[in-house]
Write a protein that binds this DNA or RNA. Sequence first.
RNA 1: GGCCGGUUCGUCUAUCGGUUAGGACAGCCCCCUUUCACGGGGCAAAGACGGGUUCGAUUCCCGUACCGGCUACCA
Length: 510
Amino acid sequence: MSQKVRVRFAPSPTGGLHLGGVRTVLFNYLFAKQQGGDFILRIEDTDQGRFVEGAEAYILNTLKWCGLEPDESPVHGGPYAPYRQSERKEIYRQYAEQLVKDGFAYYAFDTTADLDEMRIKFKTQENPSPQYNHAIRSQMRNSVSMDSAEVSRLLAEKTPYVIRIKMPLEETITFTDMIRGEVSFQSSQVDDKVLLKADGMPTYHLAVVVDDYLMKISHAFRGEEWLPSAPVHLLLWKYLGWESSMPQWAHLPLILKPDGNGKLSKRDGDRLGFPVFAMDWTDPKTNETTIGFKERGFLPEAFVNLLAMLGWNDGTDNEIFSLPELLEKFSIERVHKGGAKFDYEKAKWYNHEWIKKSGVGSLEIGVKEVFQKAGIQITDTELLTKVIELVKDRCTLLPDFVQQGSFFFQMPESFDIAAIRSKWDEKKNMFFTELVRAYELSTVWEMHDLEREFKELAAANQLKPGDLMLPFRIMLVGGKFGPGVFDIAALLGKTETVKRIEHTLGLLQE
RNA sequence: GGCCGGUUCGUCUAUCGGUUAGGACAGCCCCCUUUCACGGGGCAAAGACGGGUUCGAUUCCCGUACCGGCUACCA
């Protein structure tokens, strides 16, 4: 029986697509593609019954940026459409009803107030959060505790109800997780989870099982936080009579807060000053925008790389992997069991490595964008190419290119005159005046010649080149940064170099 | 509280019972560079604890501790 590998990711857009989500997609994708299978994107596009505007496009855009395009999705379509949960609503009810009919689930008419009351009533020191389970269901208003006439009457009166799974009393539920090995649960410890809500929408528990079955999913990867509800899903596969086609499970380790403990959340990013979303995410409810890795100036290659290393490695010292390399090297067996704390410094290191590694061509678009955002229009593409080549090794994030290279495209907005004024004297003034004259006479405008002329002239004036470098740098770029001074002068060209020396000489006269 | 999962330098991790426990990030020092970086070299830094099994345990088993997840008509 060789069934085609089909893995799926079914994000909820409630909180944007964060690191953990994209990593799940990445591992799904790698596994599927390695097996020659398909990666399916299904979208839980509802937030407690409400459609989340823009969420779908956002998720698709993110995956596109990362290079992880699905084979089937709400926009790509596919043989098992629709791929949007809100459009599949009608499908779920029949299965929930079937479960009731077969005695594996029941109607529950309890109101929110009833549930609150129950939780207060049964709350004890030893049991701070009582569950709606085998012990309690007989005391609640449901089709197990009430006689059938009463149930029929309530149903006929259109009393709101939910459908809950009826967990068996004493049963050991065991399954093999691809990452963790054998995991087992006692059914008595699991509560009667709601499968179908009063508004007719399924909960994740029902939807994921029904959809995975209908879409012929062969492998299901999700975060470790789902492990406790695995027994519910396992039982559902069994009760629905689909046990033989149940997917293989893999529960991925969590991505944790860098400081303290706990799952990484959006709040941590805000608090510690780093992104947790792949791309800018605007919360539709609060209209607040949270910055993404893309907008912070990360390369998608670096982002994918760092995500892959958060929970996996190939057993060697290699830490830099491109998507094609990951496709070749990735193995689910080497995915870690334990959660990993996210380290933003290390994340930036990956980006730096990728900027250094990337060719000028692949950097060009991103760099241009970053300049544009800073209000600098690039018209001279040839110059841009040279600038990127010259400064890329010193850029960690894309916006660093602005700091490192904006002065090639426009006159610096300010000159740090204060840094040189205290040591400025007539001799230096003379030197630079002569330098202008010498440079104007230059026939070749090349880095080494410029440096040689500069040093010869310094010697002639009995000045140490070291004392002249900083002033020269500030004249050209405005401050104490940028590549080698003569590299800058060479690239700037004769006219501009001379112009800037004369301009600052003027400023120093004031 | 219960259930489930996890535990190697500060952080991410390597190790398929025998290693001076390796690498990377961060930190510190030196070199290179007459800026800042890049680069090169170096230092410091780890097997939670207690029992087994074994000639030998970081590695296998049990217990404890600690951390995390779940415990919603959220996913």
